[in-house]
């Protein structure tokens, strides 16, 4: 109804009017007054705490600010330095390794669990709670527990188990090749609960008659999954792909806490972009350089999200 949209000027239809504080104003004016009264605080808060610093980061990325001096405009020097830094490209590769392996693996596992969990009644809530528990736990605490898991035998549980089966002990966090996957496992595990809950909600939203009709039409389990469940879960999947990708691109807590002696180590093999930004800003105090890195991260996040939405869009 374009006409009502036009007259309400941004106030939603059918909301309470907020009482007649004076009869001098029209209903619409009163409604707008109340709406903006309530919106003022969050709008102000977000502007000062969120939007201003975000936009200011773009300005800072073009300066040489180091907390001490006044920021001086240096053009794209920070970006040039960043792109010629081999450490940045290593971090770039690491970040995409988290993304490209982490997102599909975590979605595959969470879908499988949700699909199975959707079909059982016995202990359903309990099992669901177990899967959700890691999501409620502090990332730092979890990271330290996992760090202990990965220790050499007899302290680390995993190596203990391996050696009790007569298998070779693994270096895990102390190896340049195993450290990144080891950290990724904990990140996947931590996000699983959330993804399972969302997938289950998506599965529950599919009417059971869809499955019954398919069974009567003679489809097997696999065909039902492929032809009905997965296509109908697409909106849920898009949401989770985007959320999970953003999560992996911004990974920090797990890496920082599991490699505290040498954050992002060994030899930078686990360092993601956010950790590099953190170090540039708060270890080296190169605020301008760090700002340039955040701008790069922002552009990557934007590009990946838009790309995913475009790939997974509804084809008409």
């Amino acid at each position: 109804m374009p006409s009502t949209v036009q007259t309400s000027k941004g106030a939603a239809q059918g909301r309470p009017e907020g009482g007649g504080f004076t009869d001098r104003f029209s209903m619409r004016t009163k409604r707008l007054f109340w709406v903006w009264t309530f919106l003022a605080l969050p709008v102000l808060f977000y502007s000062v705490i969120r939007f201003y610093p975000t936009i200011d980061a773009f300005r800072l990325s073009l300066t040489d600010w180091n907390l001490m001096n006044k920021p001086k405009f240096i053009g794209f020097e920070n970006y040039a330095k960043l792109f010629s830094d081999p450490k940045f490209w290593q971090v770039f590769r690491n970040t995409f390794a988290y993304l490209i392996l982490g997102t599909p693996i975590s979605l595959l596992i969470s879908f499988t669990v949700a699909f199975a969990l959707d079909r059982i009644r016995f202990g359903h809530s309990f099992i669901r709670a177990l899967y959700f528990l890691p999501f409620l736990t502090t990332a730092a605490a979890m990271a330290w527990v996992w760090r202990w898991f990965y220790q050499p035998a007899p302290i680390g549980v995993i190596n203990d188990l391996l050696s009790s089966f007569g298998l070779m002990q693994q270096p895990f966090l102390r190896s340049t090749s195993q450290a990144l996957p080891s950290i990724m496992v904990t990140a996947i595990w931590a996000g699983l609960g959330f993804q399972i809950i969302i997938f289950m909600a998506g599965l529950r939203a599919i009417p059971s008659t869809f499955y019954e009709a398919a069974r009567i039409d003679g489809l097997g389990e696999w065909a039902i999954l492929k032809k009905i469940t997965l296509p109908l879960l697409k909106p849920t999947t898009i949401f989770l792909v985007v959320m999970s990708s953003i999560g992996f691109l911004r990974i920090f807590d797990q890496v920082y806490n599991m490699t505290t002696n040498d954050p992002g180590g060994p030899l930078g093999s686990t360092k993601p972009l956010v950790l590099m930004i953190y170090q540039s800003a708060f270890s080296s105090y190169q605020m301008g350089y760090a700002a340039a890195q955040t701008v790069v991260l922002f552009l990557i996040l934007l590009a990946i999200s838009l790309l995913q939405l475009w790939i997974l869009r509804d084809k008409k």
């Binding site: 009417p207 008659t209 869809f210 019954e212 009709a213 009567i216 039409d217 009905i228 296509p231 109908l232 697409k234």
Partner: peptide, 13 residues
């Protein structure tokens, strides 16, 4: 046999 349901059960996609 073939069955027709109250909510049609036709697939939106």
């Amino acid at each position: 046999i073939a069955m027709v349901f109250q909510n049609y059960a036709i697939y939106p996609h």
